[in-house]
Amino acid sequence: MKISQLVGPRTSEVVAAEDPVPGPAQVLVEVLASGVCTSDIGPWLGHDPAAEPLRLGHEIVGRVVDSGRDAGRWKPGDLVTGLGGEGFATLAAMDAHAVLPVPAGIEPAHALGEPVADLEEALSRTGIRAGDRVAVVGLGFMGLGLVQLAKRHAPGLLVGVDPDPARRERALRLGADLVFAPDELPEEYRTQTTRAGDARLAVVLEATGTTGGLRTAGSLVRPFGTLCVVGYHHTGDAMMDMDLWYKAVTVVNGFCPDRTRLMAAMRDAIGLIAERRFSYEPLITHRFGLDGVDDAFRTMTEAGPDFVKGVLVL
């Protein structure tokens, strides 16, 4: 097989390697698509050339070509997606208990199970209800996915917040009712202005991964509301405004370390994809080949107005 591996900062190479042999509870898949995730930017930017090469790619869609003795429910030719690793390759071994079938009629690049499972699992713990006033702060890939997922719960108001006008326009097309730049938010969304009611939001979904975005998100939550931190806060202290304490806000950690919960969320999310109630089509804006891993990460870091998410298509 061929596999892309990091050999230094911002430097990948495609090498030949032995085909993986699936373990007893694994399936071997021919990789058809593999999403490029922001969580891998750090390793791509700073991989030590003296260290062993690093193999990335965990958002896999593939065609089963072989299976271990305890994975017989999967047959050659089955299209699957799920939780995996070393997916920037032509072949990948995956846990047979951590893959699900790709819905009929959905192309592989639009069937990435892992990212939408992360979003759906996080959203499931917010207690969102029909009629709730909801905001999504940060309208990149994760935020736009959350707009789609939140919309199906019939919020009374769905607000998108992002400084980029192109991202705000996309959010409107995907179901947001109103969009604002952070410095243009109505004052009543941040403070209680009347005794008759509070215009702040019941559920706020933070998807920026920045302390500034987290601060904006916290300011929008009403007393006894919920702030869900979905953004990938991999650097800095991610300080929270102590006003959340005085407002008795419930803070939900959007990260889920439990594979069982993620697979349950993935099952639900793939069902939404099958029903065309969630779509990757407006989110996958850039495609690359196996030799384009560095281009994919470079495009992500530059994040021009036409970029949402990149996928390797093999």
Rank of each mutant, 00 (worst) to 15 (best):
E281H: 05
E281C: 03
E281N: 02
P282R: 00
P282Y: 04
P282T: 01
L283N: 09
L283Y: 06
L283G: 08
L283I: 11
I284H: 05
I284F: 07
T285V: 11
T285I: 08
T285H: 07
H286P: 00
H286A: 11
H286F: 08
F288R: 01
G289W: 10
G289S: 15
G289R: 15
L290P: 11
L290W: 10
D291Y: 07
D291T: 10
G292V: 02
G292F: 05
D294C: 03
D294E: 11
D294M: 05
D295M: 05
D295G: 07
D295N: 09
A296V: 04
F297E: 05
F297G: 07
R298V: 00
R298S: 15
R298H: 12
T299E: 13
T301F: 09
T301A: 13
E302N: 09
A303K: 04
A303R: 08
A303D: 06
G304K: 08
G304V: 05
G304A: 07
P305W: 12
D306Y: 05
F307K: 01
F307A: 02
V308L: 04
V308M: 04
V308T: 14
V308P: 03
K309N: 09
K309E: 03
K309A: 09
K309F: 09
G310R: 08
V311K: 02
V311H: 00
V311R: 02
V313T: 15
V313F: 08
V313R: 03
L314M: 14
